[in-house]
């Protein structure tokens, strides 16, 4: 259980840095090195995005990354291979981050088995609601994989309780209404969501959506046990995809975020 172990280790010290990237962007061969760079820069958990053709929860940056990854031939099978390769050199927790349909097509049982074999630690399916999660979540948990669910600022207490019950590893808090993407200012909807969620669970809480700078990360890190950064990383990859300096840039970007979190007492 690499995810819980990581949060246990950081408990009382600092919030975790959760880094998202779309696997296979700009090419499947490149992803393990990009993940290694993020880890060197201080990322504590990697969300490996599995590209989907119709990503309704994502803003333009991750949509474009999904298109690039699909065009480069990325499939769920390939993402599992990538995970296996990352796992050969690293013990960083890995969370598959995707939509339900590719998983249904692969077969939930088959995926649960193959993901564990590849060294994946958990799964977040953005369009799997707790109402529909039953069998899918059970199969993943038995594998064993952590099942992470999204909680939103508009989720009423009744839903927060359902989400907490279905989640393991951590709960992902959507810090503001909308799709993924960088924002100028942070929303004030996060604080009430954190306190509402704390009331119903002792699981670590990771906040994401709209966080892109060290200052924002530090601010969010005062409330949450982890801070997720996605679109800013993906945009950096997009802008430097043809540059040999991409890995260094990613590493130093992650280091900036991680340093900001080191100053925060969780």
């Amino acid at each position: 259980m690499r995810i819980s172990a990581m949060f246990d280790r950081l408990k009382g010290k600092r919030p975790a840095l959760v880094a998202y990237l779309t696997a296979g962007d700009p090419s499947p061969g490149r992803t393990p090195a990009l993940v290694a760079a993020l880890e060197r820069g201080g990322a504590d958990l990697i969300e490996l995005g599995v590209p989907f053709s119709d990503p309704v929860a994502d803003g333009p940056v991750i949509q474009a990354a999904s298109e690039r990854a699909l065009e480069a031939g990325t499939t769920l099978v390939k993402v599992l291979e990538i995970a296996g390769e990352i796992r050969r050199n690293s013990q960083i927790p890995l969370l598959l981050f995707t939509y339900l349909n590719p998983v249904l097509k692969y077969g939930v049982s088959a995926l649960a088995r193959d993901a564990v074999n590849a060294g994946i630690d958990g799964v977040l399916l953005t369009d799997l609601t707790v109402e529909e999660a039953g069998e899918t979540a059970d199969l993943l948990r038995k594998a064993p994989l952590d099942t992470v669910f999204l909680a939103a600022p508009t989720s009423p207490p009744r839903r927060l309780e359902m989400l907490a019950k279905r989640s393991s590893g951590f709960v992902y808090l959507v810090s503001r209404m909308g799709v993924t993407g960088e924002r100028q200012s942070l929303s004030d909807s996060l604080a009430p969501l954190v306190s509402g969620m704390r009331r119903v669970t002792s699981l670590p809480l990771v906040a994401g959506f709209g966080i892109s700078t060290p200052a924002q990360a530090a601010l969010v890190g005062r409330m949450a046990d982890g801070v997720a950064v996605g679109s800013a990383i993906v945009r950096l990859i997009e802008q430097n995809q043809n540059s040999p300096g991409l890995e260094n840039k990613l590493e130093s970007f992650a280091r900036g975020l991680s340093s900001a979190l080191h100053g925060v007492n969780a």
């Binding site: 309704v56 929860a57 339900l100 953005t126 369009d127 799997l128 609601t129 109402e131 529909e132 669910f149 999204l150 909680a151 939103a152 508009t154 989720s155 009423p156 839903r159 989400l163 959507v174 209404m177 909308g178």
Partner: peptide, 20 residues
């Protein structure tokens, strides 16, 4: 009550859309 026609239908959306 959850929008199922047999096994079909339902609600498969990000949590942010559940309240609306």
């Amino acid at each position: 009550a959850l929008g199922h026609f047999g096994e079909f239908g339902g609600r498969y959306v990000p949590e942010t859309l559940m309240a609306p």
